[in-house]
Design a binder for these strands. Structure first.
Length: 269
DNA sequence: ATGTCAGACAACGTCTGA
């Protein structure tokens, strides 16, 4: 069974590349993030023609997540238990953003996740990010048992200094702070393992390269797209890799700033 | 030099978020 995760940075802008990638990589399940479309605008037909069902949780301009599957799609859960809302300074109301969707595919419990960015340490969005990751831990702790389970997606946190190209460039930056890494550590301590993929090129399995400053050409990347598996999931892992080829320029259109992460599994029958 | 990209708005440029 092949499961993957990919922050596509707009499913509308990425559709030709997404369809190409589905045909080439043939994942059984694909978790998508940053769809940037409404549920109504989701390309169910084009994806369905390739044999995939889709469960979506998206609304408009920002965020948006989905799970594509050709291995069944049951028990769909949209949002986290007690998920926080982002309340900006001066705002009267918060808004529930669409950042988490869970489903069960052929006996594997899968979550597609897009953690808040945080914007800057000390920003209200940073506090929201930590609260959101705590809500994720509570949700998954309640679900975690003997059934294979994995959290896949863009966590917007680099687990260690080795997961960024140069930690010296990240002073006063989000994604590398102690509280963010503690939130990931809390997820691991609740029984999940960070399944570190292999890089197809270079030493570090980066999953994100900024569009600016020739970051991809210089391999100035970050590993922020993660797969966290419980024991029943992790024991079945045969291989995991980052498909950095999907970050390259292509005739099918411009790339996302993230590459897909793929995991191959063999579950005992 | 936040040097690129995407979407929304009401426009054909400017803003926001990443």
């Amino acid at each position: 069974m092949r499961i993957a995760t990919w922050n596509v940075n707009s499913i509308t802008a990425r559709l030709p590349r997404l369809l190409d990638w589905l045909g080439a990589a043939e994942p059984d399940v694909l978790c998508l993030q940053e769809l940037k479309c409404s549920d109504a605008a989701f390309p169910y037909d084009a994806i369905g023609e390739l044999g995939y069902g889709a469960a979506t949780y998206c609304a408009g301009r920002w965020n948006g997540v989905a799970i594509l599957s050709r291995a069944g799609l049951g028990d769909v859960t949209r949002g986290l238990a007690d998920e926080p809302e982002f309340v900006d300074e001066g705002a009267l109301f918060g808004a529930r953003e669409r950042r988490a969707i869970g489903a069960t595919c052929n006996g594997v419990r899968v979550w597609s996740l897009y953690a808040p960015n945080g914007r800057a340490p000390g920003h209200p969005h940073f506090r929201y990010k930590l609260e959101w990751l705590a809500a994720l831990q509570h949700t998954v702790t309640a679900e975690n048992g003997d059934q294979p389970l994995a959290l896949l997606g863009d966590f917007n946190v680099a687990p260690t200094d080795d997961d960024v190209y140069d930690i010296a460039d990240f002073a006063d930056s989000t994604h590398v702070t102690e509280p963010e890494r503690q939130a990931l550590a809390a997820l691991r301590s609740s029984g999940l393992t960070d399944i570190v993929p292999r890089a197809l090129k270079g030493d570090r399995p980066y999953t994100y390269w900024d569009y600016r400053q020739l970051a991809f050409a210089k391999d100035n990347g970050m590993r922020i797209d993660l797969i966290l598996g419980n024991p029943a999931f992790t024991e079945a892992v045969q291989d995991a890799y980052v498909d950095r080829n999907a970050r390259k320029d292509s005739p099918a259109g411009p790339p996302s700033d993230h590459a897909p992460v793929v995991v191959d599994l063999a579950f005992p029958s």
